[in-house]
Simulated scan of single mutants.
Amino acid sequence: MTVHHLLEKKSIGNKFVAQLRDMSVQKDRLRFRRNVERIGEILGYELSKSLRYAEQNITTPLGKIKMNLPEEEIVICSILRAGLPLHTGLLNYFDDAENSFISAYRHHPNDDENFEILVEYLASPSLEGKILILADPMLATGSSFVNVLQALETMGNPKEIHLVSVIGAKEGIEYVSREFPDNSHLWIATIDEKLDEKGYIVPGLGDAGDLCFGPKLQH
Rank of each mutant, 00 (worst) to 15 (best):
V3P: 03
Q56Y: 09
L69F: 15
E153G: 02
E55L: 04
Y175P: 12
M138E: 00
A54Y: 02
C212E: 02
T60I: 13
F32V: 11
L69K: 12
I161C: 11
S126V: 03
G172A: 08
E120N: 14
E120L: 05
L7I: 15
Y105E: 03
L91P: 00
I173E: 04
S124D: 01
E174T: 10
L134N: 04
E197I: 14
A169M: 08
H108C: 07
G172K: 09
D207V: 14
D182A: 14
D207A: 12
E128F: 05
G44N: 11
E197T: 03
E197L: 03
I74N: 02
E160R: 06
L195Q: 07
H4M: 13
V17A: 07
H4I: 11
L152Q: 10
L122A: 14
S11D: 13
M23W: 02
N99K: 01
V17I: 15
P158H: 09
M1H: 04
R106I: 14
Q26Y: 03
L80K: 04
I191S: 00
I79K: 06
K9W: 07
G168Y: 11
E128C: 04
E8C: 08
D22A: 03
L134I: 15
R34S: 08
E174S: 12
H162E: 03
N92L: 06
F101K: 05
T60R: 07
V3W: 15
D112Y: 04
N114A: 11
K15W: 04
T2R: 13
L152F: 09
K159L: 12
K130R: 13
M67G: 07
I131E: 01
L134R: 10
D22C: 05
G83E: 00
Q150I: 04
E193M: 00
E37I: 04
E193G: 02
I191A: 00
D196K: 09
L211Q: 05
L205H: 12
H162S: 11
T2F: 15
I161G: 02
S165T: 04
K9H: 13
A18T: 12
A169V: 01
N157E: 13
I58R: 11
Y53N: 06
N147A: 09
V148E: 06
Y53E: 03
I173H: 08
S103K: 08
N68S: 15
S177M: 14
K27E: 12
D210Y: 07
M67W: 05
P70G: 09
L139Q: 01
A151T: 01
G156N: 08
P61C: 15
Q26E: 06
V148N: 05
L7M: 14
L20D: 10
G156D: 08
Y93T: 02
A54H: 10
G199F: 06
L43A: 14
F101T: 06
L205A: 05
H162M: 11
N99R: 05
H185T: 06
L90I: 08
K170W: 13
D112K: 01
D95I: 08
A208N: 02
N110Q: 02
R21W: 12
L84K: 06
I133E: 02
G83K: 04
G209C: 00
R52D: 15
G214S: 13
G129M: 06
A82H: 07
N35S: 10
N92R: 04
H107D: 14
C77Q: 06
